[in-house]
Write a protein that binds this DNA or RNA. Structure first.
Lengths: 209, 209
DNA sequence: TTAAAAATGGGACCAAGGTCCAATTACGGG
DNA sequence: CCCGTAATTGGACCTTGGTCCCATTTTTAA
């Protein structure tokens, strides 16, 4: 599970200036990345592309939509990409806003190639890590949603470490019934051991919910 | 446990310009914070003050040591404070570096009062959250350190959800012995249930270590 | 070298969780 | 009114973990 041929990381390059766009793309390809170029950010916001990039390298100031707007739009859409901004003449407030919104880096032109590559490397690492844990959480959430109300109540008790007996009292049902629910919870959550169930619950939000 | 009289949050204000220093401090006090003023960052770096602040509001450019240096020094010393930077004439690279290093905000003068207060509020929230989880982790780590090597090995197996029987085989010892170690682990980790033990292990690094 | 700590194990026994059989009740749609 | 799903419960039985009392060997630190 989760093993593939470790394909080259995908990077989207977005800049309204064709020369920079191509230049950056060329550099990235030479460094072993799969680079896609966009002269406008609009296509990025339309629908879900199947291949979400591992990183986006984007100019801040673009005619139709500036980089920050693209960033916030993607965030709002739940598509959280690792973004490295590039900018010609920039101001501090803009860079701060970008960083607060989760940008990986904010490079002021001119910057040397190694600086860009380092930022991209960081972005890819972060992006992959986030996407991985996010996928795990989504998976757990989906399983959790498949539980019936009663099963969720029982699971809460189990994860809290309470004995079947006590859970039964708290829910006003027989201990036997708790056992049945408990077993079904294990099945539906696709875990073999209690330890795994606790981990699952922990990486979602059952504890607080 | 963990209930106190929710004292006023403590804020350290650091600026070599006395007028700004006092002005900011006055504003913070008027907003209900406990503000301490520092004309030099040096005292902040000496030894561990008992009362770590909930937030530090600091100028970037100061004669002896600039704000970023103070930030990195504190980080290196393990004293991770929530820092809000202020700056007169600033450049983008500096702000980006500060944000990447974990600053909560980076305000360019002049800024209005509400902006500063909002940043401080955010910083305090973040600082408290971080310090809380950090304290929990440290506590768990300490307990973990009190385990013997064998106990740690057994704990690893238990947390991984393996049966005593199997743990015994893997360690080449009798199941009875595993039980003994397991019991001692529960005592030393100060948990009552397996669920709690798994949580403890999870919030430290036993899983990977 | 000697005392303390750690690791090892045996036997007995109980309680809790897991499993396999089966069945009844309640509810919302067709 | 019938059907499927969810919720409920019983009984028998086994496995596993937890607990008590006990003892030996090895390691470690004073």
């Amino acid at each position: 599970m989760m093993s593939n041929t470790q394909a080259a990381p995908t990077v989207f390059v977005v800049d309204d200036d064709p020369s920079i766009l191509q230049g950056v793309a060329r550099l990235l390809r030479a460094s072993g990345y799969e680079a896609f170029t966009f002269e406008s950010p609009i296509p990025l916001l339309e629908k879900e592309q199947s291949p979400a990039p591992d990183c986006i390298v984007m100019d801040v100031s673009m005619p139709e939509l500036n980089g920050l707007q693209v960033q916030s739009a993607m965030t709002k859409a739940g598509r959280n990409a690792s973004i490295v901004f590039m900018t010609g003449q920039s101001d501090v407030p803009t860079s701060v806003r970008a960083m607060k919104a989760g940008a990986v880096d904010f490079l002021t032109k001119p910057f040397d190639e190694e600086t860009l590559l380092a930022a991209v490397r960081t972005a890819i690492e972060r992006g992959r890590a986030i996407r991985t844990s996010q996928a795990a959480r989504a998976s757990t959430q989906a399983k959790l949603a498949a539980l019936t109300k009663r099963e969720r109540e029982v699971m809460r008790g189990v994860v809290a470490g309470r004995l079947n007996k006590r859970i039964a009292v708290e829910l006003g049902i027989a201990e036997k019934t708790v056992k049945v629910h408990r077993q079904r919870v294990m099945e539906k959550m696709q875990v073999e051991t209690l330890a795994d169930l606790v981990r699952s619950a922990y990486e979602s939000d059952l504890t607080s919910a």
